[in-house]
Design a binder for these strands. Structure first.
Lengths: 342, 342
DNA sequence: TTGTAGGCGTTATCAG
DNA sequence: CTGATAACGCCTACAA
């Protein structure tokens, strides 16, 4: 049973392919009710479905959008995708999702694949600190949104949607200092060259200097929970005064809690504890952990909305068919989930 | 700057399109090193990328696989996707991900979209209790894997990959009875017609009868945390003896913990607590919650592996081009994460 | 209101 | 080793 095509429908329904094509595209305008019904019936009878591949050839748009996240098993990514999908699906776009695994190389491959798919637009959570990694996209004039992270040399002509990590961290230190904390132990665990943790560290560092708080950074990149535990233990032994532990990402909080439990360290009695995380499971740990929280779903929605605008700008051709006239720089607020862990 | 095609390369490199096409597909077998280099250079110079849409037209396969999950914001779904992607990406397949939102209607739409995309195969976490919802797929002879849930009337000719929910629950009751529990309060929260919770309830119920344990089910469908709290409170007041609370899905555990805290009920002192969940955050709640756990990533990997086999079976044409000769019925074990909450 | 025919970018089948 | 050319399934001027 070979695939049924528009020609088959035309023959069976005794009409021309043009008529069938018009029907498919909803141009009933000039079509007698009779033919219309006949075509409809034949289509359902033969179980015909127009080939998306063939349509793409004749149109400039594929109605496919590509999304590359850095780690799909992280809750952040799935909520981000959820937000993206919520906007794109009703608009008639299908989404190809790729996981770059925090690797610049894999990311590059995936960008090429999506360009080969002629995706109408790309949303990327980037891994590279060098925007040149993404110039294949811009030089093809493909609508592009960079979300969650921003390469330092990214031009303003490309959309960026991020959280105000830096400021939120700055404010956090102010609060900790006001509460009487003397030291800050920051646990960082970078997984890719480019990370939202970087601006966070910067914000903490600057504020720590301003407020004369001692800041120690534990770089736990590639280290396991046991290592982290030893490191925390050693570090705390060397510090005098009141110390707050800051976890720069959710998964790290998990390891930190294990370490603290094993070490018999409690919060907020022995130390203060703060973490970035995008899901509130930790509110059930003791009396809850003080959180800095993003809303990945909103990041996703805003990304998708802007991407659609770029696509429209490109199609409408008003701005010289340049999608990047619709680009946008957006910084969303990090919100605070208060809890008695500090 | 119009899109550069294979013809442009041919012209610039002074060869025929055939040669370029051969180059693209890696058929260097019969090609002088000279032309080969010339083509390569021209391709990079003009920044040429073959059009996936056009290739699909000429081939029977699209190298695209469609995945429909029931709720992408659930950790289960993202880990499932992660497993699927891990297998499919290296095999050269791109993945379109769709979220059915636990809705049979949306799911149906998405199936149609994926069929229109001529996906080489579909992996579905189904919402419908009636397999006829999926017959559009099978009648098009498109490779299909049903994962996590199984419609009662699904034929064995279609791959099913699920966990042994029923047996795991049966065993659980045995253990609870041995430990001296008299009552079982089961919190169910179905979100779609078809759910992995159904076989779980069945397993619990059967074992409860066998072991003469009293089982009460709280159907929290569509109810919020406050409602659940009241319901738990009332139920517990009416029970004599030792009671274990069983949560049939992760998100519900979250609400249950809130309720218990608000009610001042502790575990394992006042009651026992057990939950299904696919992520171990709850090991940090008190001294940890006893869990029944699936590995969604493995479910995903197995799904993808079988899908690839079906695709190969179809292409090789050995079994009369029928992908379903490679179908498989697989039941993976639920594992137990012990913790002193019972 | 309906039909004809050419072309979208690629691959496969033949010939050289 | 390389080329010419006919499909693939659909859309859209242009005709009728």
């Amino acid at each position: 049973m070979a695939k049924v095509t528009i020609a088959d429908i035309a023959r069976e329904a005794q009409v021309s392919v043009t008529t069938v094509s018009r029907f498919i595209n909803g141009n009933y305008g000039k079509m007698s009710q009779a033919t219309r019904n006949r075509v409809q019936d034949t289509i359902t009878r033969l179980d015909y479905r127009p080939s998306a591949s063939a349509r793409r050839m004749r149109q400039q748009s594929t109605h496919v959008v590509g999304v590359i996240v850095s780690d799909i098993s992280n809750v952040f990514s799935s909520l981000l995708f959820s937000g993206i999908y919520t906007e794109l699906q009703p608009a008639g776009y299908d989404v190809m999702l790729m996981n770059s695994n925090n690797s610049v190389r894999e990311e590059h491959d995936e960008i090429e694949r999506l360009l080969a798919q002629e995706a109408d637009g790309l949303i990327i959570q980037p891994n590279s600190t060098d925007f040149r990694s993404y110039e294949d996209v811009t030089s093809a004039r493909v609508p592009l949104v960079m979300v969650d992270r921003r390469p330092p040399n990214q031009p303003d002509s490309v959309t960026s949607i991020v959280s105000n990590n830096r400021e939120a961290c700055h404010d956090l230190v102010g609060r900790l200092a006001d509460m009487g904390y003397d030291n800050l132990v920051v646990v960082r665990r970078l997984r890719s060259d480019l990370s939202a943790q970087t601006p966070r560290v910067e914000g903490l560092k600057q504020a720590a200097e301003e407020r004369h708080v001692l800041m120690v950074t534990i770089g736990a990149e590639g280290q396991d929970a046991a290592w982290l535990q030893r490191e925390i233990d050693t570090t705390l032994r060397h510090l005098n005064g009141r110390t707050a532990l800051v976890s720069l990402m959710g998964p790290t909080l998990f390891d930190i809690l294990t370490a603290l439990r094993n070490l018999g360290i409690t919060f907020p009695d022995d130390i203060g504890l703060v973490s970035f995380d995008d899901w509130r499971w930790s509110q059930h740990v003791r009396d809850g952990v003080y959180l800095l929280e993003q809303d990945p779903r909103i990041l996703g929605q805003e990304s998708a909305k802007n991407l659609l605008e770029q696509i429209r700008a490109k199609e409408s051709g008003s701005g010289g068919n340049d999608p990047y006239t619709a680009s946008r720089q957006l910084v969303l607020p990090v919100s605070i989930v208060k809890a008695p862990s500090i």
